[in-house]
Amino acid sequence: MTIRLAFLIALMGFTGGLMVASFAGFREFIPGLLMGAWVTVQITVLAAILAVVAAMAAGLAKLSRIRVLRWIANIYVEIFRGTSALVQLFWLYFVLPHFGISLSAMTVAVVGLGLNVGAYGAEVVRGSIQAVAKGQYEAATALNMSRSLTMRRIIIPQAVAAMLPPWGNLFIELLKATALVSLITITDLTFRAYQLNQVTLRTVEIFTLVLVVYLALSLVITIGMRALERRVGADFGTGRVL
């Protein structure tokens, strides 16, 4: 793992250095790209929050004893996993106005990507909850805990620890998917790159630089999730005491 990280950092440093060294006059692009990156970050963060909420709700609903809830969750997950993210964005952006619902491009981006990643996350949530040992439920019953208390205090905290690594991957997929919002007129990092390319025709430099920025952002996600995993891992007795 550390080797992987070291790799990324080395690669970034190398490419970054190359950029700065070889392409003088590159500075003028930086502000536009930074503004685009900021939009990308905003969409990623907001959609990630929505994804976690949707995944929790759908994952729990899939395990519910109430059949209607299971149905709704299944339909949601199958629709959003079964159609492509771009189709979903276009549907929300171009079709929804036909039903009298006009959302801003930004709202479409956050809702569309959040629900898309949430559908994949629902499977992660369900899997991690089912992976908690049966003995934990039995111990909770023996302590006369109610079902909801058992879920809230015993099962979900353990499931959360198990679901962090797959969530890290999902967040990176989300970051990558934010590039799609450039196709519904949002001026994110990808949009800026496209625009600059049209104006300056310096294809290699611009797209390489933008790819490196995306790489750096996903590195931030990876490192952040690692830190979170270590923290939560500490809750299971690897050192830290409350």
Binding site: L8, A193, N197, L211
Partner: peptide, 29 residues
């Protein structure tokens, strides 16, 4: 093995859409 690992990591961590643009616009150069 190192460059291969770096390449895999790089492509996996960056958006497909930009990779599409890159290939589409870079070859004519």
């Amino acid at each position: 093995s190192f460059p291969a690992a770096g390449f895999i990591e790089f492509i996996r961590s960056t958006p497909l859409l930009i990779q599409i643009f890159f290939l589409y616009f870079v070859f004519p150069k």
